[in-house]
Design a protein around this nucleic acid. Structure first.
Length: 514
RNA sequence: GCGGGAGUAGCUCAGCUGGUAGAGCAUUAGCCUUCCAAGCUAAAUGUCGCGAGUUCGAACCUCGUCUCCCGCUCCA
């Protein structure tokens, strides 16, 4: 086993043991690719979300928040392209055990005829030189016409089959064309099956009177359909952004790798509306802003890299990912897309409503272009754990397992420990905790030796341990121990709120961004 | 969906050629009173994934089934 796989296994195990993430429905043997956030996990997740929200909504005057419903009008997904573009027909080869998209196989087959046409054209160019007229050649050359007819025929049949949802016809087409597995040459195919990306459910409690709606596969559309409402009620002027966090649902063909790829996941998206023509400028700005935000967390600059998309989605004119070095290697953590006016235009068309902005300076109306930043909160959570999980050997040769979670994100900020559980130390410790709990998530622990208690807090990433001893009763001073360095300092109880507050404040992170 | 691996205590696992379960860690209670884990005593915890078959007898053998994990096509 690779050590990297090992790390993921350790993180999964640690997450369950110490209360960060449990398998969903654990007592029923779990549910594939679904996980529950445990007591410490939910704190970390909330903190990550708060960091994102603050960086977007609090720090930018021209970004406002939104929390749109998970249920949306079914036409939304017609407009977004999810209904059509993400119903991929799939086919398996029985011999090679490989799975292919039927439409891709057919497309690639048609492509072969196009290649033949190109060859004929190239030959003709050589023969006729400058006098060559491609349009005329394509319209008259018998070879080209024959091949073009084949291409058209294939496309027509495919389109006709898909329009009728006739998957049997798609299989017949593959068989008629004699398409073989590109890798093995086998023509032993299974039936074509539909892959549905979106989860369906029913709106309306009376059977027969209900209509099918979908659980949203992305949060972005909730922003787009509210574009005009938000712009008007918030009196926003372009350029401005709308931020939203929330659950989204996708029936992945394969969903795995712990919380990296789940069927139910949480996105944090910000759609930034800009004047057409300025979108690539803003795209670059947001790329920069987002990588800065990531690096401010201090998980290690070397763990990040950009991956620019060469093949763009139908709605984008520029796109990249910010990848993180997960235990499985560099994988997408956040996507930044220049989505053009595709979505707003599509919603205009399907809703019949104008989704335009009147620019008071230019005195003209236009459909804004959109630059999207979209990050998976669960992936961010996994990235944080990946970087934080450290097994270190101490000077005395003993081992220590510590989660070096950025202080501002730690689920528990401070734990108060009486050195021994008598002589009034527990009472004093509780007093301190009662003082701190209004500002920080705190714990109290009196069980086991002091060293063991320190290690327990290390394992959940608590940055500060405050120890009450006999002297405390005399001088109101305590020992404060820092998680990463294990150094101890003697400080006054009255200074604790200030000392801890300075170190665990989210401001420390946010100030790095401006 | 296909291929591979695995299901025994909260965790990691042992359990021989079939004789109805054990260890370490963790947990809880008590002792000890200590500023960096692993001191002492005691306790709790299992339909050995599920079902059927073979057998006097199955955690173990046979068949079926379910679930999880890894890989492939989708994606944040």
């Amino acid at each position: 086993m690779k050590p990297q796989d090992d790390l993921l296994k350790k993180i999964i195990g640690h997450s369950k043991e110490y209360g960060f993430v449990y398998p969903s429905s654990d007592i029923y043997d779990g549910l594939s690719a679904t996980y529950d956030y445990a007591p410490y996990g939910v704190e970390l997740k909330n903190n990550l979300r708060a960091y994102w929200w603050a960086a977007m909504v609090k720090l930018n005057e021209n970004i406002v928040g939104l929390d749109s419903a998970i249920f949306m009008h079914p036409t939304t997904w017609k407009a977004s392209g999810h209904v059509d573009a993400f119903n991929d027909p799939l086919i398996d080869n029985k011999d090679s055990k490989k799975r292919y998209r039927a439409d891709v196989l057919i497309e690639e087959h048609a492509e072969k005829y196009e290649v033949k046409i190109r060859k004929d054209i190239d030959k003709a160019v050589k023969r006729f030189g400058d006098d060559f007229d491609e349009i005329q050649f394509r319209a008259t050359n018998p070879n080209v016409l024959r091949n073009q007819e084949k291409i058209d025929d294939i496309n027509d049949r495919y389109k006709a089959a898909m329009d009728k949802d006739d998957l049997t016809a798609v299989k017949e087409l593959i068989e008629d064309l004699g398409i073989a597995d590109p890798e093995t040459g086998s023509k032993n195919w299974t039936d074509v099956r539909q892959f549905n990306l979106m989860f369906k459910t029913e709106l309306g409690s009376v059977a027969g009177e209900s209509s099918i709606i979908y659980l949203r596969p992305e949060t972005a559309q909730g922003i787009f359909v509210n574009f005009l409402n938000v712009q008007k009620s918030s009196r926003m002027k372009i350029p401005f952004g709308i931020a939203q966090t929330g659950k989204a649902f996708r029936n992945e063909i394969i969903a795995r790798q712990f919380i990296f790829r789940m069927r139910e996941f949480e996105q944090m998206e910000m759609q930034f509306f800009v004047k057409p023509g300025t979108e690539l400028e803003w795209y670059e700005k947001w790329k920069e802003a987002r990588i800065k935000w990531h690096k401010a967390l201090g998980l290690g600059d070397e763990n990040y890299r950009f991956h620019d998309h060469v093949k763009l989605a139908h709605y984008a004119n520029a796109a990249c990912d910010i990848e993180f070095d997960f235990p499985m290697g560099f994988k997408e953590l956040e996507g930044i897309h220049s989505r053009t006016d595709f979505d707003l235009k599509a919603h205009e068309k399907h809703s019949g409503k104008k989704l335009q902005y009147f620019d008071p300076e230019d005195k003209e109306s236009y459909v804004p272009y959109v630059v999207e930043t979209s990050i998976g909160l669960d992936r961010l959570f996994l990235a944080t754990l990946t970087a934080a999980y450290v097994e270190e050997e101490l000077e005395d040769g003993s081992n220590r397992l510590v989660l070096k979670i950025p202080h501002a994100l730690a689920p528990v900020k401070a734990t108060v420990l009486p050195l021994i559980k008598r002589d009034g130390l527990p009472e004093k410790a509780h007093e301190i905790m009662d003082m701190l709990k209004f500002d920080f998530n705190c714990q109290y622990d009196e069980k086991d030796s002091i060293g063991k208690r320190y290690r327990r807090q290390d394992a959940i990433g608590t940055p500060y341990c405050i120890t009450v001893d006999h002297e405390t009763l005399e001088d109101n001073m305590v020992t404060i121990r820092e998680r990463d360095t294990m150094t101890q300092e003697r400080v006054a109880i009255s200074d604790l709120t200030r000392i801890i507050g300075e170190k665990v404040s989210m401001n420390t992170l946010l100030r790095k961004l401006v």
